[in-house]
Amino acid sequence: MPPPTPLSPPELSYLFTSLSLSPPIRPDLRAATQFRPIIAECSFLPHCNGSSRICMTEAGECIVGIKAEVEKDTTSKYATVVEREKWIEISVEVAGGGASGPGSGVGVGGISGAGGAAGRDEGDGGAAVWLKEGLLAGGAAGWSILDQLVISKGWHWKLYIDVLLLTPTSHPSPLLLSTAVNMALDSTYMPKLTSPHDVDDIPTFSDDWAISVPLYDPSSFPRPPMSLPVIAIGDNVFLDPSVAEVAAAEVGLVVTITLTDSAGSCDIVGVRGMEVGRGGGKEGERKGINRKLLRKMVTACVTEAGEVIKGLGEATHKQMFRA
């Protein structure tokens, strides 16, 4: 099911036509690759290792808290990969505010192939699944977040990432969730280990937060991943689509990328299909996507979004306590 819109068929058709023009005209007069403004705060929860709050005009508000707990390494010799992936636990909670009730089963951003696994009554449409996927994939050249979670021999951090969506009725975009998780991860600090690395006794930590260790070192790469929705209508590609634009789109993708250098270049770590509306055609008359367009969409994300992610990262560091 594509996200519901209040638009009527003639309105959709009008929107479709104006978006397929060359150059296209978006309803809010943005350029095709322009993002909408956001409000972003981080590191404001005292009980969390990292936290963030993101507000977007249409998608609403989202709060993420990251907590790390010390856990004994139970990884067996053979099932390492699967067991290591349990070191990170993501849960997405959708607030069932008042009249609307808990999520009506519409997945977050309608991302396909990740549905339902995380529990019916949370209505997150498996957002936790694709968020985690991006996080685990997030790194080129053998770099993995899981390696950062190793404390010492036999001990590791267990990372709990709790996403709280405060918008029960509006349409939460994957951009909202991933931006919030990205910022929270970027502001996550762990206490510094004071016991030796190679001993398997219970590790001890310094209680001085001024010398705590960042999960993602701000000066190194890759940075935390970010998932961007992108849609195409005709040959036009649009970043950060609004709900109405998604409803009028022909194809939609969620591209997960991560920053790989200070100049703003990015690596792709994941691409998923995103459910969109009927794109000007009749119901059930899906045109499919050709390779050239697919490439164009992914390229648009990689070339245009680097700067946005970089900007978000800079904003995060400016707000951090050690500024």
Partner: peptide, 14 residues
């Protein structure tokens, strides 16, 4: 009517 949600990260322990 009133609904209260405790965020999982709100306390010292999760």
């Amino acid at each position: 009517s009133c609904e209260v949600y405790f965020a999982a990260f709100s306390g010292t322990d999760r």
